[in-house]
């Protein structure tokens, strides 16, 4: 069944059991999107196709989405139809699956869902994985023009400094400027460390339980509305380092809490922190 936890858009989330019960439905397209791009080859949910967040969703030359035309060819090659129900799942608490969810929404795919808990919950429950390639029948997919109502670009972010509420969903050490990237990854990133002045820090992972599922509606409201003071009717911009962790928070604010004007800034810190002349707040100072 879909999640019935009082979330604003319960249709955006399905349980692992729901996926198991609907695997054989022809109009259901299961798509795995992982940070670990080799995970799919080691075993995936039966029938699932894979989507490579970098090689397939990023333009190989310009730092941007692939064009609408390429996106249509990509989804068509995966056997996904315009009206299909796409269920996304992946590792790391649906880290990159949430990015793909937001990405598909930008291009207007109407019926997209996340499998709550992602690959981790599926595996911890001892459910079936296979290395068998799915049978794919290519389609003539048609996308909408990109919806910039949910995507923040550089100039909008710069203009919004000090005016538009922003949530920096990186770790506290990245926010303060102590680190340039997540602690477990190589420290490659922007030219400068720190955060956008006025942004509030709330690591994306605080929206997730240990098994990768999302926290309850009350817990999420306590974090984002009471603690951070975000207004459901006011514009909010979420960002991180390259835009994937902030997609997870975008999903929470938009689909679970029902905030109306939430944008994901996928240029994020690797773009903002390399711009010339923009204001930066640096809290961390090396010991002298």
């Amino acid at each position: 069944m879909t999640e019935q936890n009082g979330y604003a858009n319960p249709d955006a989330l399905v349980t692992t059991q729901w996926v198991a019960d609907h695997l054989s439905e022809g109009s259901l397209e299961l798509v795995e999107v992982d940070e670990d791009t080799e995970a799919y080859e080691r075993g995936h949910i039966p029938g699932a196709v894979s989507l490579h967040w970098k090689n397939e969703l990023q333009d190989p030359v310009v730092r941007d989405f692939v064009t609408k035309d390429k996106f249509e060819k990509l989804l068509g090659s995966k056997g996904i139809g315009d009206n299909d129900t796409v269920v996304l799942y992946g590792g790391n608490n649906n880290w990159f699956a949430a990015y793909a969810y937001w990405y598909l929404k930008v291009y207007g795919h109407a019926n997209v869902k996340l499998m709550n808990g992602g690959r981790k919950k599926w595996e911890l429950e001892g459910r079936e994985l296979t290395t068998e390639a799915p049978s794919i029948k290519a389609t003539e997919y048609r996308a909408n023009d990109a919806d910039l109502g949910i995507r923040a670009l550089r100039d909008e972010v710069i203009a919004g400094v000090g005016k538009v509420p922003m949530v920096d969903v990186r770790s506290p050490d990245e926010f303060s400027g102590k680190l340039a990237a997540p602690a477990h990854l190589p420290q490659e990133a922007a030219q400068r460390k720190g955060h956008i002045p006025g942004a509030k820090n709330k690591p994306w992972s605080q929206a997730a339980n240990e098994d990768g599922t999302f926290k309850s509606l009350d817990e999420l409201k306590a974090i984002y509305e009471k603690e951070l003071g975000l207004d459901p009717n006011q514009e909010t911009i979420a960002y991180c380092r390259i835009g994937e962790r902030s997609s997870h928070t975008w999903f929470v604010l938009k689909e679970l809490l029902g905030h109306k004007k939430v944008k994901n800034y996928d240029g994020s810190w690797t773009e903002y922190g390399s711009l010339v002349g923009v204001p930066i707040q640096l809290d961390y100072r090396e010991a002298q």
Binding site: N92, K120, E123, L124, P172, D173, L179, P182, H184, Q206
Partner: peptide, 30 residues
């Protein structure tokens, strides 16, 4: 294939890896 999570001192999730065939894992940290 064990899910190995790295949490910071505030118990905030930082990252997750899977143990390899030898049961091994590695996190680069501060």
């Amino acid at each position: 294939g064990v899910f190995v999570q790295l949490l910071d001192s505030h118990r905030a999730f930082v990252g997750e890896v899977r143990s390899d065939k030898q049961g091994g894992f590695r996190f680069f940290v501060g």
